Amino acid sequence: MANLKPAMVADQSLEAITPPSRAQRLGQFLQALLRSPGAKVGAVILLLLFAVAIFAPAIAPFEPSQMNVGPALSPPSAEHWFGTDNFGRDLFSRVVYGSRLTLMIGLVAVGISMTVGVVVGLVAGYTEGWLGNILMRAMDVLFSFTETLIALATVAVLGPSLRNAVIAVGISSIPYYARITYGAVLVEKNKEYFRAAKTLGARHGRLIFRHLFPNILSPIIVVATVGVSVAVLSASALSFLGLGAQPPSPEWGAILAAGRDYFRRAPWITTFPGLAIAVSVLGFNLLGDGLRAALDPQQRQS
Results as ranks from 00 to 15, higher is better:
Gly288Asn: 05
Leu46Ser: 08
Trp252Leu: 04
Ala151Asn: 05
Tyr176Met: 14
Ser21Leu: 12
Ala39Asn: 11
Leu256Val: 06
Ala257Gly: 11
Val108Pro: 07
Asn133Cys: 00
Phe272His: 05
Leu256His: 03
Ser36Trp: 05
Ala156Arg: 02
Trp268Glu: 04
Leu33Thr: 08
Leu91Gly: 07
Leu256Thr: 05
Met104Ser: 12
Ile105Asp: 08
Gln301His: 08
Phe29Thr: 14
Asn285Cys: 06
Pro160Arg: 07
Ser74Asp: 04
Ala109Phe: 04
Pro37Glu: 13
Arg265Leu: 13
Pro250Gln: 03
Thr115Leu: 06
Ile174Ser: 07
Val226Lys: 03
Ala293Pro: 00
Glu15Lys: 14
Phe50Trp: 13
Gln12Phe: 11
Ile269Tyr: 03
Phe62Leu: 01
Leu46Asp: 07
Ala165Thr: 07
Val169Cys: 01
Ile269Asn: 00
Ala153Val: 12
Pro61Asp: 05
Gly242Ile: 07
Ser236His: 10
Asn164Tyr: 01
Ala60Ser: 09
Gly253His: 07
Gly83Ser: 11
Leu282Pro: 03
Ala202Ile: 12
Thr148Met: 14
Val223Glu: 11
Pro273Thr: 00
Asn164Trp: 02
Leu73Glu: 03
Gly274Ser: 08
Phe143Glu: 02
Phe50Leu: 15
Arg300Trp: 07
Thr271Asp: 02
Val9Leu: 15
Gly227Val: 09
Tyr177Asp: 13
Leu282Ile: 11
Ala138Gly: 13
Leu47Glu: 02
Leu142Asn: 00
Glu63Trp: 03
Val123Tyr: 10
Pro20Arg: 12
Trp81Gly: 06
Val69Ala: 01
Asp261Asn: 12
His204Ala: 15
Val95Gly: 03
Asn164Leu: 06
Ser173Gln: 14
Val228Leu: 05
Thr199Arg: 13
Asp289Leu: 09
Ala293Phe: 01
Asn86Leu: 00
Ile180Leu: 14
Leu275His: 05
Tyr262His: 12
Ala23Tyr: 07
Ala254Trp: 00
Ser13Cys: 04
Gly288Glu: 04
Ala276Asn: 05
Arg300Met: 09
Ile174Thr: 10
Ser172Met: 09
Val119Ser: 13
Ile255Glu: 03
Tyr126Thr: 08
Ala138Glu: 05
Val119Phe: 14
Ser218His: 03
Glu63Lys: 13
Val119Lys: 06
Gly183Cys: 00
